[in-house]
């Protein structure tokens, strides 16, 4: 297999005229990072709430929370994304749907991708939060209640702080997954990193250079996220507490 390498192509001015092809790629990189961080924030908040609901006494709330988790876990990400992007605007009241369709396409795509990734990931975060809470010794809840805390205070001061510390390692891999899953947004035309990679192939006809560069950027994200989460893990370590129960 003979292939003519032309790495310098990345530094040539791009078809848009205002930057180089490398510039395109970095713009995609920024979109990927912004999208993933926004979706992660949403997933943490939603997933935290749903995870807590799964553990509270009373069938109704925990049942609803369980249904939420099953819904977002058992439909492929791509189907969910297309549903947010193509289906939702049709089902909204016509005025809303039209308003949505008239906004800037980039914003539409970004919004759909962010909401999709947020909900998708929140179901996984919720499962981690639940298992974290379940893995606490049962007596912790009783100890909180026995001191006169309300159930909400017991969660707030006793159970959640410890459960969240316990689940930092599994959350790390969910955080990494958000970045990886964000590449699916390329299918609705959002020009994030993977989409820019494909676009570069079309424009430069040098597929390997652009794919290698994109792949390296994803690996770079990985390294940063892992280092960041390791820092979080160190910061939240509980002295004298040996993992597990």
């Amino acid at each position: 297999m003979s292939y003519a390498w032309h790495w310098e192509v990345l530094l040539q001015p791009a078809a848009s005229g205002d930057t180089t092809y490398l510039g395109w790629m970095l713009a995609g990189f920024e979109t990927t990072v912004a999208l993933s961080l926004a979706a992660w924030l949403m997933a943490l908040l939603l997933g935290g709430m749903v995870g807590v609901l799964r553990t509270v006494p009373g069938r109704l709330w925990s049942g609803l929370a369980a249904a939420y988790v099953e819904l977002f876990r058992n439909v492929p990400l791509l189907v969910q994304l297309f549903s947010w992007y193509f289906v939702l605007p049709e089902l909204l009241p016509p005025a809303w749907g039209d308003a949505y369709k008239q906004t800037n396409p980039f914003l539409q795509q970004f919004f759909a991708a962010c909401v999709c990734l947020g909900f998708f990931t929140s179901a996984r975060v919720a499962e981690q939060v639940r298992s974290g809470i379940d893995s606490l010794p049962r007596g912790q809840k009783n100890a909180g209640l026995a001191l006169g805390f309300t159930l909400a205070q017991t969660y707030r001061y006793v159970m959640l702080p410890m459960a969240l510390r316990l689940i930092v390692p599994p959350l790390t891999s969910e955080f990494l997954n958000v970045f990886k899953n964000s590449a699916v947004a390329s299918t609705i035309g959002l020009l994030e990193l993977a989409a820019q990679g494909r676009q570069l192939v079309d424009y430069t006809a040098q597929p390997f250079e652009s794919f290698i560069a994109v792949t390296l950027l994803y690996m770079l994200i990985n390294v940063f996220v892992m280092a960041g989460m390791r820092w979080v893990e160190r910061k939240t370590r509980v002295p004298g507490y040996i993992g597990g129960k």
Binding site: P137, G139, Q140, N142, A143, G144, L145, A146, L147, G148, F149, T150, Q153, Y157, V158, P161, M162, R165, V238, G240, Y241
Partner: peptide
């Protein structure tokens, strides 16, 4: 109001149940 009652009834548990993160 159970929380208010419990606030004035001390309890000590078999497994101590101190809060490990504090």
């Amino acid at each position: 109001n159970l929380p208010r009652l419990r606030a004035h009834v001390g309890m000590v548990f078999q497994h101590f149940e101190l809060f490990p993160h504090m």
